Structure formats: structure tokens, C-alpha cells
Amino acid sequence: MSIRGYFVAFCKCIVLLSLRILLLLPAGLPVRSQGDSQSDNKVMDNITVRQGETVFLRCAQGDVVTHTAWLNRSSILYAGEDKWSVDPRVSLVTLNQEEFTIKIENVDMTDEGQYVCAVQTSSRPRTTSVHILVQVPPKIINLSRDIVVNEGANVTLMCQASGKPEPSTSWKLISSSGDLASDDEYLEIPSISRQRAGTYECTAVNDIDTDVQTVDITVNYAPTVSEGRDVGVTLGQRGVLECEADAVPEADFEWYKDDRRIFNGFDGMEIINTGSLSKLTFFNVSDGDYGNYTCVAINKLGSSNTSFLLYGDAAESRDGTSKHKRGEEEQSSHVCTGVHSTCILVQTCLLFDEAGAT
């Protein structure tokens, strides 16, 4: 440090010491009750300001003022027109025989505390003190990350927030039912089910504002396949078997005819998988295509399957009876029942014809 620097620092120490001795103002002066008639120390009402706002500190002068200063704890902010604070947010607003006002812009929590205006008049010193209270809107500072779990696992979500006044936190599941909630910074979900998957919202609230953040929970589970529907297709026509599976993560699909796996493009068949749906398409159904098919849905947690029957006009249904044959039997029975005598006559004639031939 240069000689000039030492000299400036020495002068400031002398001024600060002089102010303390002159005004009998020790560092960290406690707040006294308002209206202390035994001294010239005046206590103003607390000033409440929100973080980021600007606060004005006003001090009445009067009489013949020889020295005046604004102090924060043990630091001098302004001594008359001379700025001692190195904080660019602090500036002088007014200094005359009526008042001495400074301002602090973009107030933060570090600015909270007691401020003292010290005035030396021609008669005696006096002080005016004021306490600044800084209110801070809530801010979520510690939040669980998005998670992926298997169905049946225990889950704990955490949400911690800062602010002044101290904020309260709560959790809720964003869904149509909205039946899962907690008025705490922790949310416990034992043995989570697939119905509990979704977006969870944490809300932090105080008198100033609200902060909201979300966490996504993905629940993995094994596939469940919808029951297969039999399909009847005429020879030479187009046919489609559809297989749908509910699974997280999405299932992979495999198709089988009897015990033989079918691949895309095999014997003119096409397999298209779209999300939870798989389609097996026949573009020109032949006799060899009729039969039993199986769809298998697989993911890392398990598998599920369902069966289908592709049948045609002369193919058998699941009960093993030919649909074409059943139709002929029903028609023959209907004819013989309606004209019973005719049936007997025809049969008798056939017998005579056979005897004559013999």
C-alpha cells in the first residue's frame, strides 16, 4: 500500500473513532424502545422491504448540524456528502438542513439489520435508528429428480425451499383424481402402482409469492395383452390380426403360426408395430394362411400372449365345426322337417330303383 493509501485509511479510522466517541455509539447498538425520553436516541418503526426493491433511509437534521453520518453496524455508509461505502447500490438522495436521506437499491438479505443516523449539532449529539426487515419470496432449492422405478417399489419425493417468512411446502399428483397429496416437504409412496405414475407438483408458499416445480415418476411394469379376436377372411382377400399390449417400457412383439415364428415379409405377410399396437397383415389370403396364430408382447419385466384364429368360408371355428358344413346340415334339416312326407317318398323311390337294378 502506498503512503497515500495509509494516510486515507488512517483518516477514516480517526473519523470513525471520533464519531463513536462523540456520539457515544458503540458498534452493534441494541434497538431501544420507542419514546426513550431520557436520551436523544430516537427509534423509528421497522422498515419492511422485499428482496430486489429499493429502500430509502431518512434522517431529520434541524438546528445547526456540524457532523452527520449514516452507519450500518460498524461501517459508515455516508459521512455528510462523502461516500464511504464501496457498494454501488448505496447512494445519496438528499442532504440539506431539513433531512439527510440515502437509498439502497436491489435490497438483499445481507442488507437486513440496524441502521443509525448520527447527528452532531451545536448543542449535543443525537441518533436515529431504524431496523430493515427484508422479505424474500420462496424459492425451491432442493428437489427430487425425475425417476423411473419398477411397480411395487417404495418412492420418496423431497422438496425443500428457502424464503422469508419461511415458506410452507406441499405435494400433489397432477391427475384427474388428485387423491394423492402431502402438506410436507416429503411425499412417501409405498409400493407404487402404475396408477401412481405421472407428474407430481411441489408448491412453496409464503406471504410474498409462490414457487412451483414438478417431478415426473415413470413406473415400469410387465405387458398385459388384450384378448385376441378371431377373424374370418375369404380366400384371396386382405386380412388383419391386431394385438394390443399395455406395458412400460413399450413391449416388443413377436408373431407365431402354431410354433413357427413369423417375420416381416414372410409368405407375403407384413408386421407393423406402432407403440402399443402390432398388426399382422395378409394381403392375399390362401388356404395355407388359415389356422391359429399367437401374439407375444415382451419387455424387460416379463411377457404376455394371446391367440387368434384366422378362418375362411370352409375353415373351422374354435369349436371345431366347419361353418360351411353346419350351414348345409341346417338347410337339409329344415327342408326335411317342413316336407316330411316328400322325404319319405324320395327315399322309397330310391329303394325301388336300387331293387330293379339288381
Rank of each mutant, 00 (worst) to 15 (best):
I208W: 06
T342W: 13
V285G: 11
D353P: 00
E99Q: 14
S286Y: 04
N299S: 07
V205H: 01
N154H: 14
S182V: 01
K164Q: 07
F266G: 10
T274A: 12
V205T: 12
V64D: 12
S278H: 07
Y78G: 12
A181P: 00
V296Q: 10
T294F: 01
V31F: 08
S39L: 15
E98Q: 14
P30S: 11
L24E: 15
S341C: 11
K325H: 09
S322D: 05
Q160P: 00
L29A: 05
G268N: 11
Y290L: 09
G239E: 07
K325W: 09
I147Y: 00
A314H: 15
I344T: 10
I189W: 04
R50L: 09
V205G: 00
V285W: 12
C159M: 01
D353N: 12
G80I: 08
H324W: 05
D184W: 08
S74G: 02
Q61K: 12
P137H: 02
R58K: 15
H324P: 00
N273Y: 00
L173Q: 03
I271R: 07
V248G: 02
A118M: 13
T274C: 01
S129I: 03
M109P: 02
R196W: 03
K12Y: 03
D63R: 15
G356S: 09
T94Y: 07
I47N: 02
D179Y: 03
I140A: 06
T234C: 02
S170N: 10
T214H: 08
S18E: 01
N46S: 11
D87I: 13
Q114K: 09
A357C: 03
E188W: 02
W171E: 06
T156V: 14
T127V: 11
D267N: 15
V107P: 10
A204Q: 04
S304G: 13
T121R: 13
L180Q: 08
V233S: 14
Q97C: 03
V119Y: 10
V219L: 04
I14K: 14
D87C: 13
P167Y: 05
P88N: 11
L173P: 00
P26G: 06
A245Q: 12
Q38F: 03
S162P: 00
C117V: 09
V212S: 05
A79S: 12
G113P: 05
E81N: 14
D313Q: 04
R89V: 05
L241Y: 12
T337H: 05
R260N: 11
P30W: 08
T348Y: 07
G302L: 06
Y256M: 14
R126T: 04
Q213Y: 03
C59P: 15
